[in-house]
Design a protein around this nucleic acid. Structure first.
Lengths: 210, 210
DNA sequence: CCTACCGATCGGTAGG
DNA sequence: CCTACCGATCGGTAGG
């Protein structure tokens, strides 16, 4: 149980840190600010994180990992590339919009990450682009997509979705799910594809053994 | 002539500042760093800029103005919405990629802008989104585009292009012009449109008086 | 987990 | 007498 308490405290620090970094920026936020918001003092933070930069890395890396998982989980399925692309972009959009503050802090404060921390995250991003490129390539080979440059298309789609952290308003016109579906639709159209017209719920399962 | 010299000195300061802010971040760069790179001392900078923040604003605002002009110039032309969208995105891509460092610094360091400086830039960005939305709306009404949500589509296209500052490598595979055309192509496809098949150079001018 | 405090650094400005 | 600068230093604050 002690571990649970420790983990909880750590989470609370992260929660408050990402909120303040999002609002005021990394260098505009002091460790005293974070401590104050939690009703503790600065050294408390140092019992959970070695430095201000380590706090930043704990905000960024898991979020990038979730983004990679979102696209990978969908790409691994069986079925049409169009369907997997759509689902993958919906999943990825959920991560971007549900963890909007983390994504924003990552892209703004990248320069403050440590050398090894940045390297790890860059590796994850390369894998993301690779998974998306491979999926687009697969759909092109199958005649589902029409793409003049698969690598640039992957960057265009990734950017289109990532960018949503700059404009999405949680209390705005559209809920997260709606935005995700629309972005997935645009991604398909960008790739020159579309979902199958008959999307019956009773479609035959793809991996049923005989 | 004295004015020209002053303007030149100002430009040199900005040039060095954007380079260093791009490489090391706004708070990771001291005014002494910038002065040192120019072979002068810090007070020199203060004869041209009132503060470090004013330096940042001089880096950001003109670049956003150029982005707005890029899309507006194309949207104002006569002819098919498809053609104007294509040209507008090519123009906008040029700004993003030719002024890659300025764009990157703006998006990363937005939190360091002054209240009025940020407000001015936000107004420009709203106008950008409006011009692009109107163009998409126009093309939809003319039957050139198929768009489920024009406002989200404008944000998706804007994001797709803006994002290029994060991945474009000036010494990479593709020159700026090529990337611009590919992004414009993807934007058209995202909107469910395409350029007219016959793109003859001798097309009739649209505004010739009888 | 806090009080108390340091070594270092930075943006901005004085006098000349 | 002014504009354009430099050497030196100050007040205030940061991470640890």
């Amino acid at each position: 149980m002690r571990e649970e308490i420790t983990a909880y405290k750590r989470e609370r620090v992260l929660e408050e840190a990402v909120k303040l970094f999002y609002q005021r920026g990394f260098s505009g936020t002091t460790l005293d600010d974070i401590a104050g918001a939690l009703g503790v003092t600065k050294p408390f933070i140092y019992t959970h994180f070695r430095s201000k930069v380590e706090l930043l890395e704990a905000i960024c890396r898991p979020t990038i990992e979730m983004s990679l998982d979102a696209i990978t989980d969908a790409a691994r399925q069986s079925g049409l590339a169009s369907r997997r692309l759509f689902d993958g972009i919906v999943n990825f959009s959920q991560v971007v919009l549900q963890r909007q503050a983390n994504i924003a802090v990552y892209f703004r404060e990248e320069k403050h990450l440590s050398e090894p921390g940045l390297a790890e995250i860059n590796a994850l991003r390369k894998r993301f682009d690779r998974v998306l490129s491979d999926l687009l390539e697969e759909g092109s080979a199958a005649g589902e997509f029409q793409i003049v440059d698969v690598r640039v298309a992957a960057l265009a789609i990734g950017g289109m979705v990532s960018w949503a952290y700059t404009w999405y308003q949680p209390d705005g016109r559209l809920p997260i799910e709606e935005v995700g579906k629309k972005l997935a639709h645009f991604a398909l159209q960008l790739a020159g594809g579309h979902l199958p017209v008959s999307e019956a719920p009773g479609a035959p399962p793809a991996t049923t053994p005989p």
